[in-house]
């Protein structure tokens, strides 16, 4: 993928070069899908929602004023679309459902002990993440993985800055509590 900024692809798309939008889809599809799957807890539904998010993004691209980053804007669409899906989804999947998380890793699992161990650990971590509330999952994912500043997260979830900070504080404490017996602090290089 080329390193051109989002603005370039946005401008190209708006000028009629539809193919330019594919670069934006490639750039953000993992995170949009991750947010969706962590909220909806069903890979099939999450993929459908993630597709809808990008299609909706394309339709509304002319309305994107650039007040925030494109990523923030698309994550916001993903967040609300996922919450809507969750509400309308009658067959809400149990938070413990391992199907949500194993899909991404089973295909990579070979027989190596260390890799198996890594996959198991990832599964456990993902299960812990799924135990957080929808808002907390999104906040934690965007803050720690995407390293989005709090001000951008505020735009995504529509909460105040203080509220996001409080939620972040509580969520990381809960994560630490859930995983303290599984992952030793001294096993990681802080």
């Amino acid at each position: 993928m080329t390193g051109k900024p989002d603005e370039y692809y946005i401008k190209e798309t708006l000028n009629g070069n539809v193919n330019a939008y594919a670069f934006l889809v490639k750039r953000y599809n993992y995170m949009v899908f991750t947010l969706a799957v962590r909220i909806i807890k069903n890979r099939e539904d999450a993929e459908e929602i993630a597709q809808d998010v990008f299609i909706k993004g394309y339709r509304n691209l002319a309305n994107f004023k650039g007040d925030s980053k494109f990523s923030t804007w698309i994550y916001k669409i993903a967040y609300y679309a996922s919450l809507d899906k969750l509400k309308s989804n009658k067959r809400q999947v149990n938070a413990e459902n391992i199907d949500v998380i194993k899909g991404a890793y089973l295909e990579d699992s070979h027989n190596s002990d260390s890799e198996l161990h890594d996959n198991e650990r990832k599964n456990i971590i993902n299960q812990a993440l799924l135990k957080l509330s929808e808002e907390d999952k999104v906040i934690v994912t965007l803050y720690y993985f995407e390293e989005l500043p709090v001000k951008e997260i505020v735009i995504v979830v529509g909460l105040s800055e203080d509220n996001v900070k409080v939620k972040l504080f509580r969520a990381r404490k809960k994560l630490a509590e859930l995983l303290k017996n599984v992952i030793e602090i001294n096993t990681i290089d802080l």
Partner: peptide, 20 residues
């Protein structure tokens, strides 16, 4: 730091190859 490690370790979920 622990939370950062955890979330990085959890990584991102990958949609199907045909997604784009």
């Amino acid at each position: 730091e622990f939370a950062k490690y955890i979330v990085k370790e959890a990584s991102v979920e990958k949609p199907s190859e045909e997604f784009v």
